[in-house]
């Protein structure tokens, strides 16, 4: 366990003031002026982009853990597009973008080359992509990377739709959410209620060494999980919840708050799993009804007009309650995990 994982701040804004009270070696990677700035300033992400924030924290933490000895492979998507408008690049580490669906397989190839060259003890590999590139079109490559045991940390930045192409539904889009391909019209507006597609649970089913979820509301937790992942070998999977102000219709300055509400409502469970077994959860400190979360975003606005669609909201609340039971997110609500 890295020191950061034992330190938690209850943030009320986006500034972790408590950082300054710590010894320098216990402060966050981002507080370190020697941080790598793996994805540096000047990129073209939108205001309030959760993905840019998540990638910055995750990669700098990985760079610290590896001493800067790291190669990244990126799927097509917002992160790739906003970071590399030719001839500019925000990447200050060796970085390759190949295709939409193949970031896990390209990562495998990098890892195989490093092994063949005897460099795998020195240089580590991180693959990354959005939810579309991970849970939909890239799922086959991701699953192959998991089952083969390839030495790669794969990070999914989940903003719950195809944002780069203009907010179309993905396999990670939640029920009732409005996207451009699940419009808020007709008798069942927004995305349909399905059994869902949890990439972290799918990853756990491969019994890989490490699976974790995180949000940009708990950036110390994200850093700690990256640090933990980099102490291990083999396939590791990190699923980061990253609000998208443009696609979700949320206020750009509310990105952290929206992410926190997702966790505190139970809609996005934050947990860790080793070898396919859940080993730790971030408990909900102050539970909020899902309605508080839904109301922050225009993609759910149709649920409240002209009056609240109580039945639909109750179905979403039931999903949050199931997560709370399943992962034991409230200390007094024990459930099987």
């Amino acid at each position: 366990m890295s020191p950061a994982s034992t330190i938690r701040f209850y943030q009320t804004g986006s500034i972790a003031v408590g950082n300054r009270l710590l010894d320098p070696d216990q402060r966050s990677v981002q507080a370190d002026e020697q941080r790598s700035n793996a994805i540096t300033c000047g990129h073209r992400a939108c205001q309030g982009c959760g993905e840019a924030l998540g990638a910055r924290y995750a990669l700098d933490a990985a760079m610290r853990a590896t001493g800067g000895r790291m190669i990244a492979a990126n799927a097509t998507g917002c992160l790739e597009v906003f970071s590399t408008p030719y001839p500019e690049s925000s990447w200050r580490l060796p970085w390759i973008h190949s295709l939409f669906a193949n970031a896990p397989a390209v990562s495998t190839g990098i890892a195989a080359a490093l092994r063949a060259k005897g460099l795998d003890r020195d240089i580590r590999v991180v693959g990354q992509g959005g939810d579309g590139g991970t849970v939909d079109i890239g799922m086959a490559c991701l699953s192959g990377m998991f089952e083969r045991g390839d030495d790669v940390l794969y990070i999914c930045y989940d903003n719950e739709a195809y944002m780069n192409t203009g907010v179309q539904r993905s396999g990670a889009t939640p029920p009732a959410a409005r996207t451009t391909t699940t419009p808020a019209v007709g008798p069942a507006p927004g995305a349909s209620f399905t059994q869902g597609k949890s990439a972290p649970l799918i990853a756990m089913a491969h019994e890989i060494p490490y699976v974790a979820t995180a949000t940009v509301a708990e950036l110390r937790d994200l850093e700690a999980k990256v640090a933990t992942a980099m102490t291990m070998r083999g396939p590791r999977y990190l699923h980061v919840f990253v609000p998208c102000p443009l696609g979700w219709g949320s206020d750009p300055r509310e990105t952290i708050h929206v992410a926190r509400l997702a966790q505190q409502s139970g809609l996005f469970p934050v947990f860790e799993a080793h070898d396919g077994e859940v080993t730790g959860v971030t408990p909900i400190r102050r539970q909020v009804p899902v309605e508080d979360y839904l109301r922050t975003q225009a993609r759910f606005a149709h649920l409240f007009k002209p009056q609240p669609h109580t039945e639909t909201i109750a179905r979403i609340q039931a999903q949050a309650d199931r997560n709370i039971r399943r992962f034991g997110l409230l200390p007094d609500v024990q459930g099987g995990s």
Partner: peptide
């Protein structure tokens, strides 16, 4: 290294990653 991949798409993608790493 011999990598048993899950598709031809992955085969070429692994080759891309390996070749870009100098193998």
């Amino acid at each position: 290294e011999y990598v048993n991949v899950e598709s031809e798409f992955a085969a070429m993608s692994v080759a891309i990653g390996a070749c870009a790493t100098g193998a």
